[in-house]
Design a protein around this nucleic acid. Sequence first.
RNA 1: UGAGUCGGCCGGACAGUCGCGCGGCAGAAAUACCGUGAGGAAAGUCCGGGCUCCACAGGGCAAGAAUAACGGGUAACGCCCGCCGAAGGCGACUUCAGGACCAGUGCAACAGAGAUAUACCGCCGCAGAAUCUUCUGCGGUAAGGGUGGAAAGGCGAGGUAAGAGCUCACCGGCGGCCGGGAGACCGGUCGGCCAUGUAAACUCUAUUCGGAGCAACACCAUAGCGGGACUACGGGCCGCUUUUUGCGAGCCUGAGGCGCUUGCCCGGCGCGUCUCCAUAGGGUGGCUUGAGGCGAGCAGCAAUGUUCGUCCCAGAUAGAUGACUGUUCAAGACAGAACCCGGCUUACAGGCCGGCUCACGCA
RNA 2: GUGGAUGUAGCUCAGUUGGUUAGAGUAUCAGGUUGUGGCCCUGAGGGUCGUCGGUUCGAGCCCGAUCAUCCACC
Length: 116
Amino acid sequence: MKFTRSLAPNREFRKSYAKAVHRSGRYLTLYDRKGRKGQNRLGLTVTPKVGCAVVRNRVRRRLREAYRLNEEKFRTGRTLVIVARPESAGATFWELQEDLLRLFRRMDLLKEPEEN
RNA sequence: UGAGUCGGCCGGACAGUCGCGCGGCAGAAAUACCGUGAGGAAAGUCCGGGCUCCACAGGGCAAGAAUAACGGGUAACGCCCGCCGAAGGCGACUUCAGGACCAGUGCAACAGAGAUAUACCGCCGCAGAAUCUUCUGCGGUAAGGGUGGAAAGGCGAGGUAAGAGCUCACCGGCGGCCGGGAGACCGGUCGGCCAUGUAAACUCUAUUCGGAGCAACACCAUAGCGGGACUACGGGCCGCUUUUUGCGAGCCUGAGGCGCUUGCCCGGCGCGUCUCCAUAGGGUGGCUUGAGGCGAGCAGCAAUGUUCGUCCCAGAUAGAUGACUGUUCAAGACAGAACCCGGCUUACAGGCCGGCUCACGCA
RNA sequence: GUGGAUGUAGCUCAGUUGGUUAGAGUAUCAGGUUGUGGCCCUGAGGGUCGUCGGUUCGAGCCCGAUCAUCCACC
């Protein structure tokens, strides 16, 4: 992905859970805090509560795809963690994407029109 | 044709756009091109190995765990094949933790007269009373009744006052002999003894088992707590000092010690100018060519072995296969590699192929 | 990857040599008590003992498989 690196160490996830601003949608919970300038860092969390390995993989891949397709619309310089809630196991790609965009809009993470 | 049984196989396909891991090549890099990219169970982690490290000279005792007819296969197994025995099915076939309660111990509630030993009813004999539907006492008896999962092995005959392995034939268990088989075992014959069930009750017999696991382990660079040993060190004593503390070339002592080796004992190894243990996070290797796949031939009833040819088929490290659209069909189940294999178990929409059995019909 | 624990009434738990009817507290319902309610007293109902199979005459208990939940360590 162009503007984004994946988030690796466990302590970064812990920091996000502890300090970041978060919002929940129907299928997802989004954590947001400051990051490096010019690029985003993205972490995906899909816990065993969501389902078995196949279901977790599918949810994770769909979330990454939904993020990738809309990446250009987002502000940069953030550290984001997306947590999949158990309801996301039965959601289609379109439902996940819609939920993700709604969360970004509510947390004011979309670029302003004139910034483009 | 229908019903059944056993075994094997497949697990959507194609096209387009965007996107991802690894490898190759080019490049300083961005990147471009080509190749390749989850399963039959990848799962549960129930067994067995390879591999790595520790201990390697291991030994003894104790404890623990696993397995259980026999023969074979295998690197090995608790797996597989064949076969024996038992149980079920008309049959194909299926199922079986299938050693030993004649080594010892424990348990068997309730019911029942009685549960490893018994006389409640009944039957028979004798004696007495009564005198004609019998009663009482003593003795014999496990054929019959009822209880139970199980009642002195079952059944028939002889026998008897009535009965009884009391005697006999057959069957079951044990032992001897003979024959068949590679063996479990099968068949025959003789003999006494024994005779409930339960070892998924303790136990006994035989066989097997060192410990840990790729987050193993090796290497590289970084931060860095603590312990131990040599010495000019430690410990004890003594002296100085008001005590703590500190000091002393004073005297004595020191391979004891620490770490590893499962519980104990013996034994062993490592450590000495460094070494051991523990912690935090990072990088590289381990990392995929292997008891490998596919196709033929040969040996074998089979599991399997062997020879030849041919192929290279995921190696990530927060973890690569996704998103959307279209066409098509029988409308897509269970489900995702994390060091690697051999099995077992469990989950699974639908479909295909083959062997065999039974029933009915036709020729 | 390794190891362990627990599933019993709506809830929290008992249940030992395997033995007749599986119990307690709480909750629910009914009755009593009270002017009414609570507390209290009496009684009743409520169980595929997680699931499947096996051993046994007999299984909540023993054995095997399986499902679910939880925990620990590296």
